[in-house]
Design a protein around this nucleic acid. Structure first.
Lengths: 206, 206
DNA sequence: ACCTGAACACCGTTCAAGT
DNA sequence: ACCTGAACACCGTTCAAGT
């Protein structure tokens, strides 16, 4: 029963879910796959390459365009798919952040967004820069979302610090709030900003 | 000539600049400070605590409010200070991302932004959520900015991949563009979105 | 082609013992 | 109070040798 590249990838994702990014080691991965750590180097040139492959894998689903519709709705769908992809595995956002635009599927996802914005009337350069902004927001949000996950104790730390300060209490409350709703809020903010540049939707738009 | 906490911190920042986050080890830090690695554990309970302290140190300057003026200008100033703080040391954004809202100064910076937005008329909860969105954008942008720094070869990788595709070429061009200008563009986007919620500036605003 | 075994050069952390 | 020396339990990576 030989090991294939895909098996290593799946094992790595399982281990990542179980142990987090800091707990993902070549030796443990070897153990999970019933193989010596050194054997992994036949399938991947090194740990970084393996991590890059996981990141790329994670974003595979984002590389296809959302269904037809108004540009803003399509962009929202894309942003949601991106967040969901990052949430697909523990510490997924941190993982992708360390490989970012390098991996093919990240670039492809950006390209999809560009097309949506160019169809909406934005020139290519503005469309590209806008997608970077959207991507940075999604990445930043999801890194924090995964870092502050319940049980990490980070929310409690802030709560303690906030004891005497009403504003800090509000910030602490925001962290404890449903991250999906907070994501939505920030995404709405960014989209409003994009609308200012694209101009109002006309009846001609589908 | 005894070691003080501040000396360790300064040494760690120097080492970080020289070697990057992955190259910052307790043993190398000990060597830099002419001390055994074990000695560092008298000053800090562990490596994570040391990293957290560096992150907090980095954000120290952001914890004081920008000068009086129109709310949007104050918010832009705050965002700039935040980015500059993250750029203060190599891999600074990645470092802060791994400690995020935990450290005191991160929360304080958020509080400053909240006040600016509340003074502009936003209710506390919206102000808090808005600051998260701004923070996530800044963090996401700066992580990528520091990850794609010249010499890492990431820009070249994308350029190669983009060979046949005009859209990908545009994305590659964006990466090679001045990151400061790209930051400005995205920040302007987010600010336009906030303006929609705050409402137009009235002559009553200073 | 794919993997083992064993080594090399590292890690973070602990802790008795020194000063 | 502050640090050394030395150990413990790990790392990623390489590579001859096996099958």
């Amino acid at each position: 029963m030989q090991l294939r590249r895909a098996d290593v990838l799946r094992g790595a994702r399982d281990l990542l879910d179980a142990e987090g990014l800091d707990g993902l080691t070549m030796r443990k991965l070897g153990a999970v796959l019933n193989v010596q750590a050194g054997a992994l180097y036949w399938h991947f040139p090194g740990k970084q390459a393996l991590l890059g492959a996981i990141a790329d894998d994670l974003l595979a689903g984002v590389a296809e365009p959302p269904p037809a519709g108004p540009w803003d709705q399509r962009l929202v769908t894309l942003a949601h798919k991106l967040r969901q992809a990052l949430l697909g595995v523990r510490d997924g956002a941190r993982l992708v952040a360390e490989t970012f635009v390098t991996e093919p599927n990240t670039a492809l996802a950006g390209r999809i967004g560009m097309r949506i914005l160019m169809d909406a009337g934005l020139p290519a350069e503005q469309a590209a820069w806008t997608m970077f902004a959207v991507g940075h927001y999604v990445l930043g949000h999801t890194i924090e979302e995964q870092a502050t996950r319940p049980g990490s104790g980070r929310d409690a730390e802030l709560a303690a610090q906030a004891a005497g300060d009403a504003d800090l209490r509000e910030l602490a409350a925001a962290i404890s709030a449903d991250p999906g709703r907070r994501f939505e809020f920030g995404l709405g903010l960014v989209l409003d900003g994009i609308r200012v540049r694209v101009g109002p939707r006309t009846p001609a738009d589908s």
